[in-house]
Design a protein around this nucleic acid. Structure first.
Lengths: 333, 333
DNA sequence: TTGTAGGCGTTATCAT
DNA sequence: ATGATAACGCCTACAA
């Protein structure tokens, strides 16, 4: 591995001058610059980023932590992040928390040991101790949270407006003529699912929708039980004509149950999910959904981080993305 | 940021001794060890991995390059890699080639500049220049290729036996009683698709299957055209009773076309895909497929890399995974 | 415009 | 068992 020392030796210049060339210092004559560059090519020289990082304090590495990388939502976010940062010479280092607070802490600490220039993360479901986050923030190490964020006042964050997403989904069903809606909710302990439920209810209230609306709080994922549940529900309320489900996977599951009950979608009943999963447009009928704009979420988080890295901004920034309604056949008129 | 220097000062020991404690050197007395550890806790000391890396030449960072991170197959592989390496103190740094040879080269070079200890990668579709790979190999930097591998003799690689996957998929249809099979092939320029086609044909030959089999080489992704194509095909050959498709996404697409033609699956026609995508079990009817064992592929690639990192192995290793037949309703009897 | 020299935090080789 | 010291490759005042 050739170093600037070798180049200095060959060209007869000093280490400093050679170093300046690679740092695009203006104060170096064109002649010496090209002399150095020639030597570099000849020796196949490549700067040692570790050494530069150690000396300069800037590693050009960004740490990213997500609960699971193997998940369309998070991998899309990572894609957005990578695209944004890579052209600017940053590299991203990735860790998964697997929903464990301990893994998360360890990953975070190892990022610090590696002198990352910044951190982008979505916290695990089990994270309750924010001490390390606060330390990072007070140490002025830029950190941006996305999607799942800690309840702290002064943080950079990018989130989706889940409430609004649920609201527009519900409104869409109402505007499509649905008179009797139900909501299949997710685990009420999870804050995003609570918000989605509230969005649903508020949309109903706003549109003075008859109050004969029902909430199947959670499906059991036991097909037999769920089928029975749905069946009973429809026997009690044959007028149900629209369902907003908290997520696309559950939507699909429900869609299959409904189809086995010979309920036709969207003729007899309109269905809309949440998340716009990769498969939602592939199923039959294609599933309407709320797009979470994952790529953008990643890109925006990265953009905020960049502003802090370059000191163009010091105040924390809270970004709340508006979800996008994706209308497909499952809720078409 | 506290350094070993600070600890040395506090404890009155030398840098060397302090360093030894953190490297678990045996030659340090229990008394001094605990004295150092105490001071470390007190100062909230954490080793600077960059500095250690620079000095020791071991960064504990593994570079990973995939075409797209936002893809179930690759993100599953990354998951397998991360799980395997993270407990051993390695961190993974990720880059996407986006199927560009240039991006790939750049990422690779930046990994080298970062002094990664090893590399795991799946090459882009456009990669034709193997010079850098050869240089890396001759420089003894451990590198393991997975899924898409360069045509080089002495490399570590983990791949899926696509031929075998196609073979067992086809055999499964034959054993299920199908008499008239067709294959929807993928782009014949891509080697895995060629292998899948060959597996299909060989299985037919082996089972002395009547030669009235047809290959719809590629669907156009234009629903109208494709629908017409399928329609014509079925009018000419109403006896078609089994289809092996090169991938799950195309399978779903085809399934939808078939359903719109009122062809019932699996009663009238059995269908099997390839890849076992995350949505394959969610669709109706659930799609039979060939599982590519992505998690294992990542874990195995990482394992091979580890053996080289620890010098337990120096000879290149070629691992070929056997795909797994996943039978679901779309091909059930 | 270029050179000198010290240091980033650690590890490793000698000693003692 | 411990210490002194050089070195890893680079950056950056400061000086010239």
């Amino acid at each position: 591995m050739a170093s600037i020392k070798d180049i200095a030796k060959i060209t007869g210049l000093s280490l400093a001058t050679v170093s300046r060339v690679f740092n695009n210092s203006p104060s170096v004559s064109p002649k010496t610059r090209s002399k150095v560059l020639d030597a570099a090519k000849q020796l196949d020289y490549h700067p040692n980023q570790m050494a530069a990082a150690l000396r300069s304090g800037k590693s050009k590495i960004i740490g990213v932590i997500v609960p699971e990388v193997n998940n369309y939502f998070f991998s899309s976010i990572i894609n957005g992040i990578e695209k944004k940062l890579t052209d600017l010479g940053y590299r991203i280092i990735i860790a998964q928390s697997h929903e464990s607070a301990e893994n998360e802490q360890k990953a975070l600490q190892s990022f610090l040991n590696l002198n990352v220039d910044g951190i982008l993360m979505s916290i695990s479901k089990k994270t309750t101790d924010y001490a390390l986050f606060e330390k990072i923030i007070s140490d002025q190490l830029p950190i941006v949270f996305f999607d799942r964020i800690p309840k702290l006042a002064e943080i950079n964050s990018v989130t989706l407006d889940d409430y609004k997403g649920a609201y527009i989904a519900t409104e869409h069903l109402i505007e499509g003529g649905c008179k009797h809606l139900i909501h299949v909710a997710g685990d009420s302990k999870v804050s995003i699912f609570k918000k989605r439920k509230k969005g649903f209810l508020d949309a109903l209230a706003k549109h003075k929708h008859p109050v004969n609306t029902y909430t199947v709080s959670e499906l059991s994922s036991n097909p037999k039980k769920d089928l029975e549940l749905i069946n009973t529900l429809f026997q009690l309320h044959p007028t149900i004509d629209g369902i907003f489900v908290h997520g696309d996977e559950s939507s699909l599951y429900l869609m299959n149950l409904l189809q086995s009950l010979k309920i036709s979608i969207p003729k007899q009943l309109k269905l809309i999910g949440f998340g716009n999963a990769n498969y939602s447009e592939l199923v039959q009928p294609p599933l309407s959904s709320i797009d979470q704009r994952c790529d953008e979420m990643g890109a925006i988080a990265a953009t905020i981080l960049l502003k802090h890295l370059t000191k163009k901004q010091t105040m924390p920034q809270k970004e709340i993305l508006s979800p996008k309604l994706i209308i497909r056949q499952s809720s078409a008129n």
